[in-house]
Design a binder for these strands. Structure first.
Length: 413
DNA sequence: TCTGGGGTCCTAGGACCC
DNA sequence: TCTGGGGTCCTAGGACCC
């Protein structure tokens, strides 16, 4: 365990790079990475936020997550392109496949970040890192930063140093010089709220935090405080894990193109989301004991309501019934822009269970499974509830999974 | 028509029990 | 007439990540 060699491979401006590479490969004369550009959601659907920005766009102080409206005020001739998640997934997979040439110990941390354990390998880690960097650039058409250290935390921080297309190290003896001078918000798990708190007590750099008394931090910020204190001191020891962590919850949400102000439409939206979370949880072979509904008002105020069930469920109708009840109990009549349903406290479906409730629900579950099969085979909209007809509301609502409806492109990556 | 979607983990406070 | 003190379960909300 001592002296592992860990790589953190981070795709530079991932969505934007992938979009740029794809467009170049398909004959576009423009490289999005060289002009002020962003990948952004659809403003007409009220999804108008910045998902990724080019380095020239960054020069205009455009930040990921801000509204496109505000980005356009900073840079009026900004080029905006829509996201294509399924293509990004392919690009990501192509990269992971290449990384398997270098180590069997690979952890896919997100669509654009991978940890790789290069301990006890014959070749020099620095040479290998540069080889990986160059191969991704030449063979896949996009660039990455690679951070190297003895643990994942330091490797991840190192990959965030100067970009793009670079390899950096951050070994323990380099912490004082390379990490401690950084602003405290550059530390993993220090977000805007914690930055504010820390600043308010005179802690501005990672070094300031590292050299604050540990017990003082704990009494003040509790467990999360202890975590960031350890990180500031470079302490972290989790393994590079090949297996994806078990799923703890399944949820979908949707921001509607227009505010919903009546119960009937709200219920229909909840039904559409129930169809999606229900299908997903059945696909996982799991059931859930907790159903939670949350809503966001026109004024961006959000609140939630949840209920624990006596028996875990995976039935769309049961989920919907509870979601509707929860909604009716909490809704104060405000105009609503977003709805979400989340299922948690999951348990496996594969054991035999006998209860009265199961017998009652058996028909429902057989129906769900039949519909799932049809939808997987013929598309999500091949079977829809009649209540959605002419409603203007999608019969299955939720997230990026819908994108997979599009036919798969032949992979150029 | 400014502000997405999918997650994990933690804490506070109330209910309830002994 | 001064009101303990654990412990567990549940819910709501908030912080963080990509």
């Amino acid at each position: 365990m001592e002296s592992r060699i860990i790589f953190h491979i981070d795709v530079n401006s991932a969505y934007l790079s992938w979009e740029a590479a794809y467009r170049l490969q398909h004959g576009s004369p423009i490289d999005l990475r060289e002009i002020p550009s962003i990948v952004g959601g659809d403003q007409t659907k009220r999804h108008g936020i910045v998902l990724a920005k080019s380095i020239p766009a960054k020069k205009f102080n455009i930040i990921t997550g801000e509204s496109i409206h505000s980005a356009l005020q900073k840079c009026p001739n900004l080029t905006i392109v829509p996201p294509s998640y399924s293509r990004y997934m392919e690009a990501s997979e192509a990269m992971v496949d290449m990384l398997r040439d270098y180590s069997p110990y690979i952890q896919r941390y997100s669509i654009d970040e991978v940890f790789l354990d290069y301990s006890n390998m014959r070749k020099c880690y620095m040479e290998v890192a540069h080889e990986i960097r160059e191969r991704i650039h030449k063979e896949l058409g996009f660039t990455v930063n690679i951070g190297i250290s003895h643990n994942k935390l330091l490797a991840k921080i190192a990959s965030d140093f100067k970009k793009p297309n670079m390899v950096h190290t951050l070994f323990p003896h380099e912490i004082r010089e390379k990490m401690w001078p950084l602003p405290v918000e550059d530390l993993f798990m220090v977000g805007s709220r914690t930055k504010k708190k820390l600043n308010s007590r005179g802690i501005y750099t990672i070094g300031d935090l590292a050299n604050t008394d540990r017990d003082y931090i704990y009494s003040w910020l509790k467990k999360p405080g202890l975590l960031i204190w350890s990180y500031a001191n470079g302490i972290e020891s989790s393994p590079v894990s090949n297996l994806p962590p078990p799923v703890k919850s399944v949820g979908n949400s949707s921001t509607m193109p227009f505010d919903v102000d009546n119960k009937k439409e709200a219920h229909l939206v909840l039904l559409g989301i129930s169809e999606m979370v229900g299908m997903r949880i059945r696909d996982l072979g799991q059931r859930a004991r907790v159903v939670s509904v949350s809503i966001k008002t026109h004024d961006f105020f959000s609140y939630s309501h949840q209920r624990k069930l006596d028996t875990p469920t995976s039935s769309t109708n049961t989920i919907y019934g509870i979601a509707r009840k929860l909604f009716d109990e909490m809704w104060q009549g405000e105009a609503l822009r977003q709805f979400s349903i989340s299922l948690s406290e999951l348990s496996s479906d594969d054991f035999f269970q006998l209860s009265l409730t199961d017998l009652i629900n058996e028909k429902d579950e057989i129906l769900d499974k039949t519909i799932d099969k049809l939808r997987y085979k013929f598309g999500y909209n091949s079977v829809i509830r009649s209540s959605f007809l002419h409603s203007g509301i999608s019969p299955i609502i939720g997230g990026v999974i819908m994108e997979e409806e599009y036919p798969m492109m032949s992979s150029k990556f």
